Computed example of a mutant assay.
Amino acid sequence: MGRLLLKLFFAVALPVVLVAVWWAASDGSKDPFWPPLRTILDTFPDVWTADRLRTDVVPSLLRLLGGYATAAVAGVALGTVIGSYRRVRAVCEPVLEFLRAVPPPVLVPVIMLFAGIGDTMKIVVIASGCVWPILLNTVEGVRAVDSVMLETARSYGVTGAARLRHLVLRSASPQIFAGLRQALSIGIILMVISEMFAANNGIGFTVVQFQRSFAIPDMWTGILVLGLLGFLLSVVFRLVERRVLGWYHGLRDTTRRS
């Protein structure tokens, strides 16, 4: 119980301190672009009503989920193939390094030419940025699978899908989840950027509209929504990761104790 309370304290201590500093630093501010935190919080419930959550937050989440899921499937599948075969890796590596160096926001105008300005464009933009950390971490995770375990599996006749599922992907799963964690934050950023370019709803679109109409406190509430959304998605991801990688965390904790 004491350990749980300590973890809870460390989890909330820094946010509480940052909010207190923000409150104190902005209190009494007359700058129209830097309103007091008190004003922003008073504005929040009037702006983010249930109707606005349905019309702006839900579409953003669906786009993020679509792009993120597409990137996860493509990244893990391609990364497994590239990591498993040396010749494939030698052929693909220069191209991957070139494509990875291109910032995804730069591709937004190009993607708009082919995919239009609808939800498809936004999903493709999100997927194009999220796929790289997943792909590269999967490649490295597959390459790091213990060769002795591979030979043992081959000796016992564990091949094909069973070998891929129970050995390769399971061994590489900690690194795959590291890539998925990195991709989540990238996906949120690209979700906002894609909605700022061309959209008629979504959190990014709403924040830009507030800024253009000089509704600055309303704009700051949108930024708070993005922060809260990122925090909640991080918590959900951590819960899923702890459940899927329970065997890995248990093994690591046992090793530390010994």
Rank of each mutant, 00 (worst) to 15 (best):
M196E: 04
V125I: 14
F214Y: 13
L14D: 05
E195W: 01
S155E: 05
L229W: 00
L229S: 04
F231A: 12
D218I: 04
E93S: 14
S185C: 06
A77D: 05
R54D: 00
A162H: 12
E195G: 03
V225E: 02
L96I: 15
Y85F: 13
T152A: 15
V76D: 03
M112L: 15
R52W: 04
L169N: 02
F237T: 05
A183Q: 10
V168T: 15
T255P: 01
R181P: 04
G141I: 00
A144D: 08
D218S: 15
W132G: 02
A161Q: 09
V47N: 02
T39A: 14
R52F: 00
I193D: 00
P109T: 10
D46A: 14
V88A: 14
V21M: 14
R252E: 09
V142P: 04
Q175G: 03
S128P: 06
C130L: 07
T55D: 12
P105Q: 11
Y68C: 01
T120S: 11
I111E: 04
G222I: 14
F9L: 15
L228V: 13
P15S: 02
G129N: 11
P104R: 06
V108H: 06
V91F: 14
L62M: 12
L41Y: 03
V91T: 12
Q211P: 02
L224C: 09
C130R: 13
G227H: 08
H166K: 14
I216F: 10
R257M: 10
V57H: 03
D31Y: 11
T80K: 01
R52E: 06
C130F: 06
A161S: 12
V17E: 10
A198I: 06
T159A: 12
D56G: 07
W34C: 08
A77V: 15
P36S: 10
G129K: 03
L107F: 10
G160H: 10
F44K: 00
G157R: 13
W48S: 03
P36V: 02
I123A: 02
R256W: 05
P109S: 08
I117D: 04
L184C: 05
T152I: 14
W34D: 06
R86D: 08
G250V: 03
E140G: 10
S171N: 13
I216M: 11
L61A: 10
L245F: 06
G118S: 07
V125S: 09
L229C: 07
Y85M: 04
V88I: 15
T159F: 07
A162E: 11
